[in-house]
Design a protein around this nucleic acid. Structure first.
Length: 470
RNA sequence: GCCCCCUUCGUCUAGUGGUUAGGACGCCAGGUUUUCAACCUGGAAACAGGAGUUCAAUUCUCCUAGGGGGUGCCA
């Protein structure tokens, strides 16, 4: 056994943890777990102006909700600025970097000209070998890396395979800004090295960056990590993820009633596969996950499949897990679906859970399904329920009520026996009794099995709800 | 514009130089049924296009088209 595996998830704190970031985190987490290594968390806050405390909190909260833990304390890149600067200075001292005094106007002009001439829009290296004596007096220079001009850089990517980029396409990147602060490109390389990162797993929007970073690793004579660039996730229309479809924070998925386990299972199948398997326990994932089974094509986000998985996890999760997940939802959301969190309602919900689960695809469905239990008499009938309660149906209910009032026990088996006896005696169909009864008891036309509804409501409440309709 | 990456049912994907190209979600039909969901049975549905290599290409190579990413003193 050589070096232990060390991966890292390195989000920039400019917003919440979106779905793509969540999958990247998952892959890093799984790979570390699969190989008995560690996953570190690094906040890439090099650009102070665009970073925020709230975003950091949102990202940490998102990871926790997804149940993806990291090893050690989060590393804030910003805190290592002095170290990053030191490396840049060392490169400068060794002649592997230089000061560039170009103005941004000059740079823009350079790019536009190159583009117009059909050449790669890169910095032309005009200060690369220029006499420092030419330096304009009032300009603070940036420090640029002297990157190789000939040949090519090959990224031996574990997902993409060998990716070759001509060095002429890569210009002399900026290490230190004119205000002396390090850029992202420098910081990642130094931090990945200092943190002992062995495997970099990230979105393939970083693929070309990898070539530049590779050059830096080589110049510094540092061991390069194994790169894995994972294709991005697209929205359902194939376009880049935007606020509409997938670019929601993971907490938005929580609020839609998805379980973390379901989201993880969905996400891992977006790009990774293990034969025809679809459902994985965390243990199986850790046992089977590997880089070579990650695909190279971008995937589209599909809510229908997520829902189907969620339904599976709802039905296989212990009731306590479900109740805890519902309790973790914002109060406002709960109230919106008729659930005021008093003890009595939580008890009703818990008791009803077994019959609610099979017909729910999300936690929201569960709450909605239990809504009739929270409601107070007299119930308001929706349009369909109102229609079902015709004069004739009400008569049926009146007769059934008499029957139920004498019912000895109020549990599902005896209730069912009573009602079936009633329909046989009156020679009517089950539907002719169940539907009016359902309407009277729930105010609607869909619910769990009618005997369950009767039992859940309890004798007094059920009987009263029927009397309310007579 | 320039560079890089990608392309199997609607979607996620499996797969191989010779297969009836498999699974899942969704969809359609039927069954079951007290509603809804579930469940059971059956069905429609894909190798982007064109060359080349080969006895044989979905599979290997090239081109085209389409999609995505990058192209910052952002990360």
């Amino acid at each position: 056994m050589t070096n232990p595996i060390v991966t890292r998830f390195a989000p920039s704190p400019t917003g919440f943890l979106h779905i793509g970031g969540a999958r990247t985190a998952l892959f890093n987490w799984l790979y570390a777990k699969a190989k008995g290594g560690r996953m570190l968390l690094r906040i890439e806050d090099t650009d102070r102006r665009r970073s925020s405390e709230e975003a950091v909190e949102a990202i940490l909260a998102g990871l926790k909700w997804l149940e993806l833990d990291w090893d050690g304390e989060p590393v804030f890149q910003h805190a290592h600025q002095a170290r990053h600067r030191e490396i840049a200075e060392a490169l400068l001292a060794e002649g592997m970097a230089y000061k560039c005094y170009c103005s941004s106007e000059e740079l823009t002009e350079m790019r536009e000209k190159a583009r117009a001439e059909g050449r790669p829009p890169v910095y032309d290296g005009r200060w690369r070998d220029r006499d420092p004596g030419d330096a304009p007096p009032d300009v603070d220079p940036v420090i640029r890396f002297k990157s190789p001009r000939e040949g090519e850089t090959v990224i031996d990517d574990a997902v993409q395979g060998p990716v070759r980029v001509a060095n002429s396409e890569l210009d002399d990147l900026i290490l230190l800004r004119s205000d002396g602060t390090p850029t992202y490109m420098l910081s990642v390389v130094v931090d990945d090295h200092d943190m002992g990162i062995t495997h970099v797993i990230r979105g393939d929007d970083h693929l070309t960056n990898a070539a530049r970073q590779l050059q830096l690793f080589v110049a510094l004579d540092w061991q390069t990590p194994q790169f894995s660039h994972v294709p991005l996730i697209h929205g359902s229309d194939g376009a880049k993820l935007s606020k509409r479809h997938g670019a929601l924070g993971v907490e938005a998925y929580r609020d839609m009633g998805y379980l973390p386990a379901a989201l993880r299972n969905y996400l891992v199948r977006l790009g990774w596969s293990h034969g025809d398997d679809e459902i994985f326990s965390t243990e199986e994932l850790i046992k089977w996950f590997d880089l070579d089974a990650i695909g190279r094509a971008p995937a589209r986000f599909d809510f229908a499949k997520l829902e189907s998985l969620n339904s599976h996890y709802i039905n296989t999760s212990p009731d306590e897990t479900l109740i805890a997940a519902i309790r973790a939802l914002p109060d406002q959301l709960l109230n919106q679906h008729g659930l005021v969190g008093d003890t009595e309602n939580w008890q009703k919900l818990t008791r009803a859970l077994p019959v609610l689960k099979p017909r729910a695809r999300t936690l929201i469905d569960i709450i909605e399904g239990a809504r009739f239990l929270f409601a107070t008499r007299p119930l308001t009938m929706d349009a369909k329920a109102d229609k079902i309660l015709s004069d004739q149906s009400v008569e049926v209910l009146r007769e059934l009520l008499a029957e139920l009032e004498t019912s000895a026990a109020w549990d599902v088996p005896s209730l069912e026996r009573d009602v079936r006896g009633f329909i046989e005696a009156n020679d009517i169909k089950m539907g002719a009794v169940a539907q009016p009864l359902r309407a009277a008891l729930t105010g609607g036309t869909t619910s769990p099995g009618i005997f369950d509804v009767l039992a859940l409501l309890g004798r007094d409440e059920a009987l009263e709800r029927i009397r309310d309709r007579l």
